[in-house]
Protein backbone atom coordinates (compact mmCIF):
# COMPACT_ATOMS: atom_id res chain seq x y z
CA UNK A 1 0.00 0.00 0.00
CA UNK A 2 2.87 2.38 0.85
CA UNK A 3 4.58 1.72 -2.47
CA UNK A 4 1.29 2.29 -4.24
CA UNK A 5 0.81 5.65 -2.51
CA UNK A 6 4.38 6.70 -3.33
CA UNK A 7 3.86 5.90 -7.02
CA UNK A 8 0.63 7.84 -6.98
CA UNK A 9 2.28 10.89 -5.40
CA UNK A 10 5.07 10.98 -7.97
CA UNK A 11 2.50 10.79 -10.74
CA UNK A 12 0.51 13.59 -9.11
CA UNK A 13 3.53 15.91 -9.01
CA UNK A 14 4.32 15.20 -12.66
CA UNK A 15 0.77 15.91 -13.75
CA UNK A 16 0.76 19.15 -11.76
CA UNK A 17 3.88 20.33 -13.58
CA UNK A 18 2.23 19.45 -16.88
CA UNK A 19 -0.96 21.30 -15.93
CA UNK A 20 1.00 24.40 -14.91
CA UNK A 21 2.97 24.44 -18.16
CA UNK A 22 -0.05 23.97 -20.38
CA UNK A 23 -2.10 26.59 -18.51
CA UNK A 24 0.74 29.09 -18.56
CA UNK A 25 1.43 28.66 -22.27
CA UNK A 26 -2.24 28.96 -23.13
CA UNK A 27 -2.61 32.08 -21.02
CA UNK A 28 0.39 33.62 -22.74
CA UNK A 29 -1.25 33.02 -26.10
CA UNK A 30 -4.47 34.79 -25.10
CA UNK A 31 -4.48 38.31 -26.55
CA UNK A 32 -4.45 41.17 -24.06
CA UNK A 33 -2.66 41.48 -20.75
CA UNK A 34 -3.47 43.08 -17.43
CA UNK A 35 -1.32 46.14 -18.28
CA UNK A 36 -2.99 46.67 -21.64
CA UNK A 37 -6.44 46.38 -20.19
CA UNK A 38 -5.67 48.71 -17.27
CA UNK A 39 -4.05 51.29 -19.58
CA UNK A 40 -7.23 51.27 -21.58
CA UNK A 41 -9.06 52.02 -18.36
CA UNK A 42 -12.67 51.07 -18.09
CA UNK A 43 -13.57 48.51 -20.72
CA UNK A 44 -16.48 46.33 -21.67
CA UNK A 45 -14.95 43.81 -19.30
CA UNK A 46 -15.56 46.16 -16.41
CA UNK A 47 -13.35 48.53 -14.53
CA UNK A 48 -9.84 47.20 -14.44
CA UNK A 49 -8.25 50.28 -13.01
CA UNK A 50 -5.56 49.63 -10.45
CA UNK A 51 -5.74 50.13 -6.76
CA UNK A 52 -2.72 51.97 -5.29
CA UNK A 53 0.55 50.21 -5.83
CA UNK A 54 -0.76 48.32 -8.80
CA UNK A 55 1.86 49.91 -10.94
CA UNK A 56 4.64 48.10 -9.05
CA UNK A 57 2.92 44.76 -9.39
CA UNK A 58 2.56 45.24 -13.08
CA UNK A 59 6.18 46.18 -13.45
CA UNK A 60 7.23 43.03 -11.67
CA UNK A 61 4.56 41.08 -13.45
CA UNK A 62 3.50 40.83 -17.01
CA UNK A 63 6.27 43.01 -18.45
CA UNK A 64 8.91 40.42 -17.59
CA UNK A 65 9.94 37.61 -19.96
CA UNK A 66 7.53 34.69 -19.85
CA UNK A 67 10.01 32.15 -18.52
CA UNK A 68 10.80 34.41 -15.56
CA UNK A 69 7.12 34.80 -14.80
CA UNK A 70 6.67 31.03 -14.91
CA UNK A 71 9.63 30.27 -12.67
CA UNK A 72 8.69 32.85 -10.07
CA UNK A 73 5.15 31.55 -10.09
CA UNK A 74 6.25 27.93 -9.61
CA UNK A 75 8.54 29.01 -6.80
CA UNK A 76 5.59 30.77 -5.20
CA UNK A 77 3.44 27.69 -5.58
CA UNK A 78 5.96 25.36 -3.97
CA UNK A 79 6.52 27.69 -1.01
CA UNK A 80 2.79 28.54 -0.92
CA UNK A 81 3.70 32.24 -1.17
CA UNK A 82 2.46 33.37 -4.55
CA UNK A 83 2.67 37.06 -3.77
CA UNK A 84 0.27 39.88 -4.60
CA UNK A 85 -2.20 39.77 -7.43
CA UNK A 86 -2.17 42.50 -10.08
CA UNK A 87 -5.63 43.70 -9.26
CA UNK A 88 -5.34 43.67 -5.47
CA UNK A 89 -1.69 44.36 -4.61
CA UNK A 90 -2.41 44.30 -0.88
CA UNK A 91 -3.80 40.79 -0.98
CA UNK A 92 -1.79 37.74 -1.88
CA UNK A 93 -3.08 34.98 -4.14
CA UNK A 94 -3.15 32.40 -1.39
CA UNK A 95 -5.10 34.76 0.88
CA UNK A 96 -7.79 35.31 -1.76
CA UNK A 97 -8.07 31.59 -2.45
CA UNK A 98 -8.07 30.94 1.29
CA UNK A 99 -11.05 33.27 1.69
CA UNK A 100 -13.05 32.00 -1.26
CA UNK A 101 -12.50 28.26 -0.85
CA UNK A 102 -14.37 27.85 2.47
CA UNK A 103 -17.35 29.61 0.91
CA UNK A 104 -17.44 27.20 -2.02
CA UNK A 105 -16.86 24.30 0.33
CA UNK A 106 -19.81 25.21 2.57
CA UNK A 107 -21.97 24.96 -0.55
CA UNK A 108 -20.29 21.88 -2.00
CA UNK A 109 -20.64 19.62 1.05
CA UNK A 110 -24.41 19.99 1.53
CA UNK A 111 -24.95 19.96 -2.24
CA UNK A 112 -23.06 16.66 -2.58
CA UNK A 113 -24.93 15.12 0.34
CA UNK A 114 -28.23 16.27 -1.12
CA UNK A 115 -27.23 14.71 -4.45
CA UNK A 116 -26.48 11.36 -2.82
CA UNK A 117 -29.61 11.31 -0.70
CA UNK A 118 -31.88 11.96 -3.66
CA UNK A 119 -30.07 10.27 -6.54
CA UNK A 120 -29.43 6.84 -5.00
CA UNK A 121 -33.07 6.02 -4.11
CA UNK A 122 -34.33 7.35 -7.45
CA UNK A 123 -31.74 5.33 -9.37
CA UNK A 124 -32.49 2.19 -7.35
CA UNK A 125 -36.20 2.58 -7.86
CA UNK A 126 -35.77 3.04 -11.60
CA UNK A 127 -33.55 -0.05 -11.79
CA UNK A 128 -35.81 -2.31 -9.75
CA UNK A 129 -38.88 -1.08 -11.66
CA UNK A 130 -37.15 -1.32 -15.00
CA UNK A 131 -39.51 -0.86 -17.95
CA UNK A 132 -42.33 0.15 -15.59
CA UNK A 133 -43.89 3.59 -15.26
CA UNK A 134 -41.58 4.62 -12.40
CA UNK A 135 -38.56 3.85 -14.56
CA UNK A 136 -39.79 5.63 -17.68
CA UNK A 137 -40.99 8.64 -15.69
CA UNK A 138 -37.82 9.14 -13.71
CA UNK A 139 -35.61 8.49 -16.70
CA UNK A 140 -37.45 11.08 -18.79
CA UNK A 141 -37.28 13.68 -16.02
CA UNK A 142 -33.60 13.03 -15.34
CA UNK A 143 -32.61 13.24 -18.98
CA UNK A 144 -34.48 16.51 -19.36
CA UNK A 145 -32.87 18.00 -16.26
CA UNK A 146 -29.45 16.90 -17.40
CA UNK A 147 -29.92 18.71 -20.69
CA UNK A 148 -30.81 22.03 -19.03
CA UNK A 149 -28.12 24.44 -17.79
CA UNK A 150 -27.64 24.48 -14.01
CA UNK A 151 -28.05 28.23 -13.52
CA UNK A 152 -31.56 27.98 -14.95
CA UNK A 153 -32.64 26.28 -11.74
CA UNK A 154 -31.00 29.02 -9.69
CA UNK A 155 -33.06 31.61 -11.56
CA UNK A 156 -36.19 29.51 -11.24
CA UNK A 157 -35.70 29.11 -7.48
CA UNK A 158 -35.07 32.85 -7.10
CA UNK A 159 -38.26 33.61 -9.04
CA UNK A 160 -40.35 31.27 -6.94
CA UNK A 161 -38.96 31.66 -3.42
CA UNK A 162 -37.46 35.16 -3.43
CA UNK A 163 -39.53 37.16 -5.87
CA UNK A 164 -42.80 35.25 -5.68
CA UNK A 165 -43.10 33.92 -2.14
CA UNK A 166 -40.56 36.36 -0.68
CA UNK A 167 -39.26 33.83 1.86
CA UNK A 168 -35.60 33.66 0.81
CA UNK A 169 -33.04 36.34 -0.06
CA UNK A 170 -32.38 36.97 -3.76
CA UNK A 171 -28.60 37.08 -3.67
CA UNK A 172 -25.65 37.69 -1.41
CA UNK A 173 -23.78 35.85 1.33
CA UNK A 174 -24.76 36.97 4.80
CA UNK A 175 -26.14 33.94 6.65
CA UNK A 176 -27.46 30.38 6.49
CA UNK A 177 -30.66 31.38 4.68
CA UNK A 178 -28.47 32.54 1.78
CA UNK A 179 -27.26 28.96 1.31
CA UNK A 180 -30.57 27.31 0.50
CA UNK A 181 -31.09 28.40 -3.10
CA UNK A 182 -27.48 27.84 -4.25
CA UNK A 183 -27.22 24.41 -2.58
CA UNK A 184 -30.38 23.20 -4.29
CA UNK A 185 -29.42 24.78 -7.60
CA UNK A 186 -25.98 23.17 -7.45
CA UNK A 187 -27.38 19.73 -6.58
CA UNK A 188 -29.94 19.49 -9.40
CA UNK A 189 -27.70 18.52 -12.29
CA UNK A 190 -25.35 16.18 -10.40
CA UNK A 191 -28.46 14.45 -9.04
CA UNK A 192 -29.68 13.75 -12.55
CA UNK A 193 -26.26 12.48 -13.63
CA UNK A 194 -25.77 10.32 -10.57
CA UNK A 195 -29.29 8.86 -10.57
CA UNK A 196 -28.89 7.69 -14.14
CA UNK A 197 -25.54 6.23 -13.21
CA UNK A 198 -26.99 4.44 -10.17
CA UNK A 199 -29.70 2.99 -12.38
CA UNK A 200 -27.36 1.53 -14.98
CA UNK A 201 -24.92 0.34 -12.34
CA UNK A 202 -27.72 -1.41 -10.43
CA UNK A 203 -29.07 -2.96 -13.60
CA UNK A 204 -25.68 -4.36 -14.38
CA UNK A 205 -25.30 -5.81 -10.89
CA UNK A 206 -28.84 -7.24 -11.06
CA UNK A 207 -27.89 -9.18 -14.17
CA UNK A 208 -25.04 -10.93 -12.37
CA UNK A 209 -25.55 -14.56 -11.64
CA UNK A 210 -24.71 -14.24 -7.95
CA UNK A 211 -28.06 -12.48 -7.59
CA UNK A 212 -29.86 -15.60 -8.83
CA UNK A 213 -27.57 -17.70 -6.65
CA UNK A 214 -28.46 -15.64 -3.57
CA UNK A 215 -32.18 -15.88 -4.36
CA UNK A 216 -31.80 -19.62 -4.87
CA UNK A 217 -30.27 -19.85 -1.40
CA UNK A 218 -33.50 -18.43 -0.02
CA UNK A 219 -32.80 -14.75 0.40
CA UNK A 220 -35.66 -12.28 0.17
CA UNK A 221 -35.63 -9.82 -2.72
CA UNK A 222 -34.89 -7.10 -0.20
CA UNK A 223 -32.00 -8.89 1.52
CA UNK A 224 -30.38 -9.82 -1.76
CA UNK A 225 -30.82 -6.30 -3.06
CA UNK A 226 -29.14 -4.75 -0.04
CA UNK A 227 -26.50 -7.35 0.80
CA UNK A 228 -25.33 -8.13 -2.71
CA UNK A 229 -26.65 -5.81 -5.39
CA UNK A 230 -26.57 -2.41 -3.71
CA UNK A 231 -23.12 -2.84 -2.26
CA UNK A 232 -21.56 -3.98 -5.52
CA UNK A 233 -23.30 -1.38 -7.61
CA UNK A 234 -22.21 1.41 -5.25
CA UNK A 235 -18.53 0.69 -5.87
CA UNK A 236 -18.34 2.28 -9.33
CA UNK A 237 -20.36 5.24 -8.05
CA UNK A 238 -17.39 6.37 -6.00
CA UNK A 239 -15.68 7.29 -9.23
CA UNK A 240 -18.51 9.64 -10.14
CA UNK A 241 -19.11 11.16 -6.72
CA UNK A 242 -15.45 12.14 -6.33
CA UNK A 243 -15.33 14.40 -9.40
CA UNK A 244 -18.83 15.76 -8.66
CA UNK A 245 -17.65 16.91 -5.26
CA UNK A 246 -14.40 18.29 -6.63
CA UNK A 247 -16.34 20.22 -9.27
CA UNK A 248 -18.64 21.78 -6.70
CA UNK A 249 -15.87 22.51 -4.18
CA UNK A 250 -13.85 24.45 -6.74
CA UNK A 251 -16.81 26.68 -7.33
CA UNK A 252 -19.33 26.90 -10.08
CA UNK A 253 -18.99 30.11 -12.02
CA UNK A 254 -22.58 30.62 -13.13
CA UNK A 255 -24.33 30.02 -9.84
CA UNK A 256 -21.78 32.00 -7.80
CA UNK A 257 -21.75 34.97 -10.12
CA UNK A 258 -25.52 34.93 -10.51
CA UNK A 259 -26.26 34.72 -6.79
CA UNK A 260 -23.41 36.97 -5.66
CA UNK A 261 -21.54 34.36 -3.66
CA UNK A 262 -17.85 35.19 -2.97
CA UNK A 263 -16.60 31.70 -3.79
CA UNK A 264 -13.79 30.32 -5.94
CA UNK A 265 -15.86 30.33 -9.11
CA UNK A 266 -16.52 34.05 -8.93
CA UNK A 267 -12.91 34.77 -7.99
CA UNK A 268 -11.70 32.77 -10.96
CA UNK A 269 -14.07 34.37 -13.45
CA UNK A 270 -13.07 37.92 -12.46
CA UNK A 271 -9.37 37.00 -12.58
CA UNK A 272 -9.87 35.61 -16.06
CA UNK A 273 -11.64 38.70 -17.33
CA UNK A 274 -8.87 40.94 -16.01
CA UNK A 275 -5.95 38.72 -17.09
CA UNK A 276 -4.76 38.72 -13.49
CA UNK A 277 -2.02 36.18 -14.16
CA UNK A 278 -0.86 35.28 -10.63
CA UNK A 279 -4.43 34.77 -9.47
CA UNK A 280 -5.38 32.81 -12.60
CA UNK A 281 -2.41 30.50 -12.31
CA UNK A 282 -2.91 30.11 -8.57
CA UNK A 283 -6.59 29.28 -8.93
CA UNK A 284 -5.98 26.82 -11.79
CA UNK A 285 -3.29 24.99 -9.85
CA UNK A 286 -5.52 24.90 -6.79
CA UNK A 287 -8.32 23.33 -8.86
CA UNK A 288 -5.90 20.77 -10.23
CA UNK A 289 -4.65 19.86 -6.76
CA UNK A 290 -8.19 19.48 -5.40
CA UNK A 291 -9.18 17.27 -8.31
CA UNK A 292 -6.13 15.06 -7.94
CA UNK A 293 -6.58 14.72 -4.20
CA UNK A 294 -10.19 13.71 -4.83
CA UNK A 295 -9.11 11.12 -7.37
CA UNK A 296 -6.62 9.73 -4.89
CA UNK A 297 -9.34 9.50 -2.24
CA UNK A 298 -11.61 7.80 -4.78
CA UNK A 299 -9.00 5.16 -5.49
CA UNK A 300 -8.42 4.56 -1.80
CA UNK A 301 -12.16 4.30 -1.22
CA UNK A 302 -12.36 1.90 -4.14
CA UNK A 303 -9.78 -0.31 -2.53
CA UNK A 304 -11.67 -0.29 0.75
CA UNK A 305 -14.90 -1.31 -1.00
CA UNK A 306 -13.55 -3.85 -3.46
CA UNK A 307 -11.18 -6.56 -2.24
CA UNK A 308 -9.89 -7.20 -5.74
CA UNK A 309 -8.62 -3.64 -6.09
CA UNK A 310 -7.33 -3.66 -2.52
CA UNK A 311 -5.16 -6.68 -3.20
CA UNK A 312 -3.91 -5.14 -6.40
CA UNK A 313 -2.94 -1.94 -4.60
CA UNK A 314 -1.02 -3.85 -1.97
CA UNK A 315 0.80 -5.67 -4.77
CA UNK A 316 -0.75 -9.01 -3.96
CA UNK A 317 -0.88 -11.88 -6.41
CA UNK A 318 -4.08 -12.49 -8.21
CA UNK A 319 -4.06 -8.89 -9.29
CA UNK A 320 -3.99 -9.92 -12.91
CA UNK A 321 -7.64 -10.84 -12.62
CA UNK A 322 -8.57 -7.67 -10.80
CA UNK A 323 -10.89 -5.44 -12.69
CA UNK A 324 -13.19 -2.78 -11.51
CA UNK A 325 -16.54 -4.50 -11.41
CA UNK A 326 -19.59 -2.85 -12.79
CA UNK A 327 -17.56 -0.21 -14.58
CA UNK A 328 -19.39 0.66 -17.77
CA UNK A 329 -17.70 -1.37 -20.42
CA UNK A 330 -15.74 0.74 -22.83
CA UNK A 331 -16.12 -0.49 -26.34
CA UNK A 332 -13.10 0.03 -28.51
CA UNK A 333 -15.27 -0.60 -31.51
CA UNK A 334 -13.44 -3.75 -32.38
CA UNK A 335 -12.84 -6.81 -30.32
CA UNK A 336 -9.35 -8.26 -30.22
CA UNK A 337 -10.69 -11.23 -32.13
CA UNK A 338 -11.70 -9.15 -35.10
CA UNK A 339 -8.47 -7.14 -34.92
CA UNK A 340 -6.49 -10.35 -35.03
CA UNK A 341 -8.67 -11.59 -37.83
CA UNK A 342 -7.97 -8.53 -39.91
CA UNK A 343 -4.23 -8.94 -39.33
CA UNK A 344 -4.43 -12.64 -40.15
CA UNK A 345 -6.16 -11.81 -43.41
CA UNK A 346 -3.26 -9.59 -44.29
CA UNK A 347 -4.52 -6.17 -43.28
CA UNK A 348 -2.42 -3.81 -41.21
CA UNK A 349 -2.99 -3.36 -37.50
CA UNK A 350 -3.97 0.30 -37.65
Amino acid sequence: MLGYMARRLVRMVLSLVAVSLITFVLLQMVPGSFSELSNAGSTIYGDVGMVDGGEAAVNQGDQRPAWQQYLSFMKGLVTWDMGPTYKYPQASVEELIGEAFPVSLTLAIPATLLTLVIAIPIGMLAAVKKDKLADYGSLFTLTTIQALPGYLFALLLVLIFSVGLNVLPVRGWKGPEYMIIPVIALAVQPTAVLARYVRSSMLEALRDEYVVAALAKGGTQRTVLIRHVLRNSMIPLVTVVGPIFAGLATGTVFVEVLLGIPGLGRLFSSAARQRDMPLLMGATMFFAIILMVMNLLVDIAYGLLDPRIRLEQSGNKGSRRAKRPGQPKVSTGMSTDSTETVVAIGGTRV
Binding site: D208, E209, Y210, V212, A213, A214, A216, K217, G218, H228, R231, N232, I235, L305, D306, P307, R308, P325
Partner: peptide, 18 residues
Protein backbone atom coordinates in the same frame (compact mmCIF):
# COMPACT_ATOMS: atom_id res chain seq x y z
CA UNK B 1 -31.42 -23.37 -0.30
CA UNK B 2 -32.70 -25.48 2.59
CA UNK B 3 -34.68 -27.99 0.50
CA UNK B 4 -33.27 -27.58 -3.00
CA UNK B 5 -29.73 -26.35 -3.57
CA UNK B 6 -28.46 -24.93 -6.84
CA UNK B 7 -25.04 -25.18 -8.46
CA UNK B 8 -24.22 -22.93 -11.40
CA UNK B 9 -22.00 -23.19 -14.44
CA UNK B 10 -19.54 -20.46 -13.59
CA UNK B 11 -18.57 -20.02 -9.97
CA UNK B 12 -16.73 -16.82 -10.80
CA UNK B 13 -20.03 -15.13 -11.57
CA UNK B 14 -22.27 -17.13 -9.25
CA UNK B 15 -20.23 -16.14 -6.22
CA UNK B 16 -20.29 -12.48 -5.24
CA UNK B 17 -16.77 -11.21 -5.94
CA UNK B 18 -16.74 -8.69 -3.11
Amino acid sequence: GAGIGMVFQNAMSALNPT
